[in-house]
Write a protein that binds this DNA or RNA. Structure first.
Lengths: 176, 176
DNA sequence: CCGATTTAGTGGACAGTGTCCACATTACGT
DNA sequence: ACGTAATGTGGACACTGTCCACTAAATCGG
């Protein structure tokens, strides 16, 4: 349901219906509809993270190799944006955690980004002094691009590819 | 209602109730709840734009002055982030237009950003070649920061100020 | 000025939703 | 084997968006 219609589409009664059970049965597993939604959000976030590690896995080259490190960073960004476009419902759901009990999963997008940036430092591509805290602007720019082009005013913009290329270039500019 | 609880909180029946009228009366003014929401979204977006022009208005210095131009760009970014934090409900609503009939208002955030960047070129601060399309990465990074720190996983993060300073530095880096 | 037409509001209804309560069933460990 | 915990059921309530037929008020052309 989240995949098809985003967070609003995950409706408790329909979920129980699809599983062949009466609505109230859900309350033996979740206190709230919000708790159910939180679980779905965690699953969506997990799928995003998995796509990112899959993207990393597709670039070959030893850890510490400068070009490989750069390509790995590009790969996680590309996977992030690709996920947002291929699964807009799940992407929106991943970041629609109700209140605040987001007990982070093992492999989180931010963690993967940090790993990639650390490798970039290790490979001598990124100045260690510039490394500090740079994950936040980079995450922001990728996330902002994803949100604006899938849910925001730039959604269905014909030149999405160009916009993404521009953000990629901007990031590359900010690293050197 | 949007101000207090975001887009989900704008509920048709309560709106009519607060205006002292029966629910169905709303259907003489809006075809849908979505059409009502679209109107609210437009109003929210307008308030965001107004805050941005107010921010521009507070920096003095003639158009074309390099330092003034830079401060004006910083001002619209700061206004954007400040609005997101002071009015999280309205900010979320501004970007929650139902489907896609967002007949853009006169002064839109993107338009204001473009003006500021054009002035930066005019003042000789920004290389005209680098100007082309740079509004998208910049909008993305500011929007991404706003979203992540007000609705996303970084919401209520104690070091929001630092994160915003980092994105500001990253943008400055990308302009020179 | 008056009658017709548009505009705005009313009342009642329906399906769908989240949630609560008391009750029945099933599974399981000692 | 039995008591306890886990799970599912049935019925209800308040709330939501939306539809229909009907009424009151405002507006406007002759």
């Amino acid at each position: 349901m989240a995949r098809a219609g985003g967070p609003e589409a995950v409706v408790l009664r329909e979920a129980t219906r699809s599983v062949g059970v009466v609505p109230n049965a859900a309350y033996r597993h979740f206190a709230d509809r919000d708790e159910l939604l939180a679980e779905v959000c965690a699953a969506a976030m997990n799928e995003l993270a998995e796509r990112m590690v899959a993207g990393i896995g597709r670039v070959r080259g030893k850890r510490g190799n400068p070009e490989a490190a750069q390509r790995r960073l590009a790969a996680i960004g590309a996977a992030y944006l690709e996920f947002a476009h291929q699964e807009p419902g799940l992407f929106a759901t991943a970041f629609a955690v109700p209140q605040q009990h987001t007990y982070a999963a093992a492999r989180t997008p931010l963690g993967l980004l940090r790993d990639a940036l650390d490798e970039l430092v290790e490979a001598g591509v990124l100045d260690p002094q510039r490394r500090e805290g740079i994950e936040y602007p980079i995450w922001s720019i990728v996330h902002g691009t994803a949100v604006l082009t899938t849910q925001g005013p730039l959604r269905d913009d014909p030149q999405v590819r160009r916009i993404e290329a521009l953000t990629s270039a901007f990031i590359g500019n900010g690293l050197t």
